[in-house]
Amino acid sequence: MIEALNLVKWFGPILAVNDVTFTVERGEVLGFLGPNGAGKSTTMRMITGFLPPSSGTVRIDGHDVVDDPIPARENVGYLPENAPGYPEMTVTGFLNFVAEVHGLGGQDKRDAVGRVVEMCHLRPVLHQPIDTLSKGYRHRTCFAQSILPDPPILVLDEPTDGLDPNQKREVRDLIREMGKEKAIILSTHILEEVDAVCSRVIIIDNGQLVCNGTPDELRKRAPGAGSVTVGIYDHKAGEIKDVFSGLKGVKRVDVLGEHNGAVQVKVYPVRQDGNPLELGPVLANVMKERGMVFGEFHTEKGRLEEVFYDVTRAEQEVASDTEKVSNNVG
């Protein structure tokens, strides 16, 4: 569906996107994460053919967006950042215009416009000029425009920006629903959104792709992922620590302190191929054998925020480490 191969974009001397490669298939909703200025919007603009890449190619359904733009664009619905619209036009005038540009006329046009008006709840503002709309309505009008021709591919740059919580939820439901048969790319700052709608996540930092996987896979990369917190009664902290530390698969045991008469410890697992080992059964077994009574037991799934922080910060640290090493060598 969408193939982005080795995308590079220079703005003068600034490298905005550096060798980004990924594909999105039908039935996938790809979440595009990254700090501000990481190159998300630039990448999306290259996918929609608005910006030509400095090198690399984008293919939509096999059509190169630079060499064969029209068939490629026919298949893509695009919601640009900040949801632009022609200020003096009414909502219905704007949607009719978009339908006509996509070659719809007569009943087809009326059906298509009617459908998105219902989906995006635009009926109350149909005859209002776009520049008099509230931010939420303006955003939904532009969103409606992107799904109007019912394209198999959607590129949505911050689709829930400026919406209130209820509207956010509706748009997410809509995206999830459409994601069943379309290929969708959306960028966002909101990590819960990724959990709510995305089947796959890409994190991009400083123009480079630093992560690509399902939300669950990414979560496992969080530093705290797979760690188990237990609160154990009637045992000394040192004893507990010794018992757990000796177990296979345990990397480290931290004593967190006492709470309601129970010693709380946090047990970190060893990682294999970057994935944390499952500690729950091991710990449960050993506590059963030794007759340890516990009041609390939970395994951390890892939070996307942590991963996000980790990969977008670590980059810089790694960079400075390499520098040190090369300095030493030198």
Binding site: R45, P69, P80, V98
Partner: peptide
């Protein structure tokens, strides 16, 4: 200025 150029130039027109 209004950003509509991004819509216009990504529509299926040259």
């Amino acid at each position: 200025r209004s950003g509509t150029i991004e819509l216009l130039l990504t529509m299926p027109i040259t």
